[in-house]
């Protein structure tokens, strides 16, 4: 018997999901395992090895849970200072002996209902399952599909990268798991969770008739900006638009020439030394600047008032 020195990702995700669920339960904190291998085993996506254990944590209890987990060697992954269109919704924790991140989410972007009500709804519909031979809870099938759908729609340019599920693969999963009423079930569940408009492209793919919201809330507008732009370009532009004078210069500098520490926090894969920083900047300019025209158009068309944007 030996202490595991090189834990593979698949084993680590299963064990870590069970471990966090156990500690959350001990603290009386509700936690749902989302995405990842459980979704694969439920037939919601193709089975593939995840790089993170994702859990949705009862709103208002995330800090308490992360403080508790920090006693066991887990610590928050340093993040660069990057603005967000949809407010920061998760904490990534890492451990020196584990190959994966714990991604602990305080709400799920795209569920525009009040976060506590959304979580209560997800919890009331939960599945009690076993992961790594230990008890865990996961969202019900329809909610689990919507979580994957919103994750995919939030990252439009990665839909064909294999990192998120395509809408077509999710449609097939929905039909396979929820037939004969996949469309009705998902529209009803989306309505309960405040996701009819955010998940509309997927629901339409299933045959639902979803009229565009003629008077969208700011949250829905921000969601549309996020789901129409790549990476953080839209967020940088919104920050820039809402700022004035010297503040704008600082934002532009952080966007185009971020400090090496920020750059490495966002891109830990960069090679060491000045060469790595230069490479990071170059990649940023190449991908970011090409996205600017589309992001500008999207923000202009969104009709977002200047001060409503969130950084």
């Amino acid at each position: 018997m030996s202490v595991v020195s090189t834990l593979d990702n698949a084993s680590a995700v299963d064990l870590a999901s069970a471990w966090v669920s156990h500690h959350a339960r001990a603290l009386g904190i509700r936690a749902l395992v989302i995405k990842g291998p459980l979704a694969g085993r439920l037939g919601l996506r193709a089975e593939r090895v995840s790089a993170d254990a994702d859990l949705l944590i009862e709103p208002g209890r995330l800090d308490e849970l992360t403080a508790h987990l920090s006693h066991f060697g887990w610590y928050e992954r340093p993040a660069g200072r990057v603005p967000r269109i949809v407010e920061a919704h998760s904490v990534s924790m890492i451990h020196d002996d584990w190959p994966i991140d714990l991604d602990l989410h305080s709400f799920w972007p795209g569920f525009l209902g009040e976060p506590a009500a959304v979580f209560d709804s997800l919890w009331s519909d939960r599945l009690e399952l076993s992961q790594a031979n230990a008890p865990v809870a996961a969202p019900g099938i329809a909610a689990g599909i919507l979580i994957l759908v919103l994750h995919s729609l939030r990252n439009p340019l990665t839909q064909h990268s294999g990192r998120v599920d395509t809408l077509e693969s999710l449609r097939q999963a929905a039909v396979a798991t929820l037939s004969p009423s996949a469309c009705e079930t998902l529209v009803a569940r989306a309505a309960e969770l405040g996701a009819v408009q955010t998940a509309a492209p997927f629901l339409r793919l299933l045959g639902a008739e979803i009229a565009p919201d003629a008077d969208p809330s700011d949250e829905l507008t921000l969601w549309r900006v996020k789901s129409s732009t790549s990476g953080n370009v839209g967020a940088w532009l919104l920050d820039f638009r809402n700022a004035h004078g010297a503040q704008r210069v600082r934002i532009a500098q952080r966007a185009l020439l971020p400090a090496p520490s920020d750059l490495r926090a966002q891109h830990p894969e960069l090679p060491p030394g000045p060469h790595g920083v230069m490479l990071g900047w170059f990649r940023r300019w190449r991908t970011g600047l090409s996205e600017v025209p589309r992001a500008v158009t999207t923000i202009r068309r969104s009709g977002l008032p200047r001060r409503k944007a969130r950084g």
Binding site: S2, W19, A132
Partner: peptide, 16 residues
């Protein structure tokens, strides 16, 4: 690979 969920150091063991 076995993990004691209340282990103070969160280190799994491999049984072979």
């Amino acid at each position: 690979v076995v993990l004691l969920l209340d282990s103070p150091d969160c280190r799994p063991f491999e049984l072979t």
